[in-house]
Design a protein around this nucleic acid. Sequence first.
DNA 1: GATTGTGAAGAATTTCACAGCC
DNA 2: GGCTGTGAAATTCTTCACAATC
Lengths: 255, 255
Amino acid sequence: MTRPSSRPRDRGIPEATVARLPVYLRALHGLTDRGVPTVSSEELAAAAGVNSAKLRKDLSHLGSYGTRGVGYDVEYLIYQISRELGLTQDWAVAIVGAGNLGRALANYGGFVSRGFRIAALLDVQESLVGAEVAGLRVEHSDQLEAVVRQRRVSIGVIATSAAGAQTVCDRFVSAGVTSILNFAPVVLNVPEGVDVRKVDLSIELQILAFHEQRKAAGALGPDWNVSVEPPPAPPERVGGRIPVDAVDAAEEEGR
Amino acid sequence: MTRPSSRPRDRGIPEATVARLPVYLRALHGLTDRGVPTVSSEELAAAAGVNSAKLRKDLSHLGSYGTRGVGYDVEYLIYQISRELGLTQDWAVAIVGAGNLGRALANYGGFVSRGFRIAALLDVQESLVGAEVAGLRVEHSDQLEAVVRQRRVSIGVIATSAAGAQTVCDRFVSAGVTSILNFAPVVLNVPEGVDVRKVDLSIELQILAFHEQRKAAGALGPDWNVSVEPPPAPPERVGGRIPVDAVDAAEEEGR
DNA sequence: GATTGTGAAGAATTTCACAGCC
DNA sequence: GGCTGTGAAATTCTTCACAATC
C-alpha cells in the first residue's frame, strides 16, 4: 500500500535513524543556547559525533528541511525533529523502584525537561513509601494500576531488582502501558505490540572489556588468551538432559 | 591475509555479535542456577530474546562449541563466552560522580560480580568525600590520575553532570584509560583508540515516545500530527549566519 | 561557491534453509 | 530424529559522489 506521494516523506523512518534523532536534537539545543541560528550538516554532524552524509540521509527521511548552500535553520529543525519524535505532547512516566537508581532517574533533570513528566515514583518497600524525592512522594507499588489509569501513564520505567522486574512489567502491560524502559538485568517477556527498551550497565561494561582485551591482545602475540586457566570441563557428554520447558509457567508464546 | 585455519575461529567477531554475547551469558547463568546442563539453540535463544538462527550464527563466530543433535553444554559455553569477552581476568573500574547515579552504580551487585571490581568512587564535591558507599570511601576527584595509575584502572565510568563530563573524560584519557562508559548526556570527544559507550536515559525515552506516538497514530488517520501547534517560525531566511567556530570556548556550560 | 538531498554502491546484519553430524 | 553450523539470499544500514538548488 504505497501512498501516491501526496506527502513528501515516507512515514517509515528507519530504526537506526530514529535512534539518532534524539542525539541531533540535543546538539541542536546546544546550538540555540549559544544563539546559533543556522547550521550546516557538517557542523551538526560533528557536534553529534556522526558523519555528515549519514546526518543528511537521516534528516531527509523527515522531509526537506534544509536550504542548499546554506544549511538548516536550527529552531525549525528542532521543531521538526521534536514533532517527529512525539515530543510536542508530553508523556507521563511512572518509575517503579525508588532505590538509588529510581531516585537518580527521578532527579535527572533532562528527564523532565522536554516532553516527559514523572507522574509517579513507586516502591514495594514500606520504609520508602511517603519519602519525598524530587518533589514527588514515593507511593506504594500496590497503586501501580490505579496510578497508570488515573494519570494516563504511557511509559513505564522499571528500576527494581531483577527479581521483581517481570512482575512489574506484567502489571504495567495489563494496566495498558505499551512502552517500557527496563533497567533491571533481565530479558522481559511481553506480548506483541509492547515496546521494551533495555539499559544494562553490565552489558555495556562487558562490551568495553571485550575491546579492551583486544587492545591488550595486540601487544602480545595471537593465541595469548588461550587456556589462561585449565580448560574447564571439556564438553563431557553424559546424562540425559533436562528440557527447559517449565520456563515461564505462564502459557505465553510459540513461534 | 587469511590464516591457514590452524585456529577454528576468525578473531574478527562482528560488533553486533559482541553486543549480544553478554545477553547470552546472562541467560546461561540463569540456566546453571536452575541446574540445567545442556541447552539447544532454540531454548537459549528464547531465554535471550533473539531468534535461534542468529544465536547459532553468533556462537559460530567463537568456534564450534555445540553438539549436533544435542545442543550446547551450559558450563562450557559460559566459559567460552566469558573468555571471549575477557571476563576471565578482572577489570578495575573507577566511577566519577557519587551522586544518586554513581551510588546506584557502586551498589549495583551485578556490576561487581563477574569480572569487574570497583576500584574507586570519586567526586568533586567536598561534602561527599569520605562518605562510605558500598564499602568504598568516596575520594576527591583530584585523585583521579593517581588512582588510575596505582590501581591499574582500565575502565572509567562517568556519572557526573553534563558540564563536568568532558573534563573528566580528558583526564581519564590522559591518565591512560582507553575504555569509558558515559552516563552524562553529552557527546564526548576522544582521540582515536579510546572506546566510549554511552548510556542515555533521555534518548531511550525519546525512542519509546516515537514508537508510542506511532501506535497512537494508527488509531487516528494519517497526517494526525500535522500542525498540532502553529507551524513555528517557517524557515525564515534572513540574517547572515554565525559560524560555529567558537565552539569550545574553554568554559563549560551545559543545559 | 556552498551545501543539501539522493541514487547507487558497498558493508554489515539478519534470516532462510539445508547439509552434515551426533 | 534432532540439532548445529553455514553458505546464500534478503534486508538494513552506511558511505560515496554528484546533480540540483540556493
